[in-house]
């Protein structure tokens, strides 16, 4: 464990909690892409199956359980508890355009052709594109509430910190996970455009982030 990865995991946890609290306190999921949240729950479900096969550390187990619980709680709030505020007209990204290539690629490119490895690889590739429905929804509505942008900021920060973690581990441990790194870099690139808008619009105190 290094400070970059720890900060990345904390940033990821903060993002998930920000979103969950926003929905719970405002009793509404307007402007939130339920599809992205379902994809994230799927990412955790397919990646954390090793909870039942290997013990890494208490931290590892606790964080995986927390991420699973919070992501399912978020999906529950969106599609069940506050479903009447779910903005389905604007949450129209075709997730099959993400799932089909990701499934295909995880069968082609993996470390071993075993169920756990293919599911892990699937979760890595899926996480890279899971935010697309949310970013698409923001471009469609032309704006995002500031809390939603904070959620996206911390998600992007988590990815940027993981890249720093991989640079650190490469130099300190000679560690290099090609699938995770390539997919992680692609995922981080998707946030760059958002980061620019976040800094230029949200942090300038405009409150909402409205796209040009």
């Amino acid at each position: 464990m290094n400070i970059f990865r720890l900060a990345g995991d904390v940033s990821h946890l903060v993002a998930i909690i920000i979103l969950l609290l926003k929905i719970w306190r405002s009793k509404s999921c307007a402007g939130i892409s339920g599809k992205s949240q379902v994809l994230f729950a799927l990412v955790f479900s397919t990646r954390y199956l090793d909870l039942f096969t290997v013990f890494v550390s208490v931290y590892n187990v606790v964080m995986k359980v927390v991420f699973l619980a919070l992501s399912y709680a978020t999906v529950y709030l969106i599609y069940m508890r506050f479903r009447n505020s779910y903005d389905s007209e604007n949450d129209t990204f075709r997730v099959e355009f993400l799932l089909v290539p990701v499934i295909g690629l995880s069968f082609l490119e993996n470390y071993a052709f075993t169920p756990l490895e293919i599911l892990w690889t699937f979760s890595i590739f899926l996480e890279a594109v899971a935010i697309m429905p949310q970013l698409f929804m923001i471009t469609k509505t032309g704006e995002a509430e500031s809390i939603t942008t904070h959620y996206l900021f911390f998600l992007g920060l988590y990815r940027a910190l993981y890249i720093a973690n991989w640079v650190w581990r490469y130099h300190m441990e000679g560690f290099f996970d090609q699938i995770a790194v390539v997919s992680g870099v692609v995922q981080t690139i998707f946030y760059c455009d958002f980061f620019y808008l976040y800094v230029t619009r949200v942090l300038r105190g405009k409150g909402k982030m409205s796209l040009p």
Partner: peptide, 10 residues
Amino acid sequence: NRQDELKDEL
């Protein structure tokens, strides 16, 4: 390779 190495990242 990575398969038998411990996957310790979240």
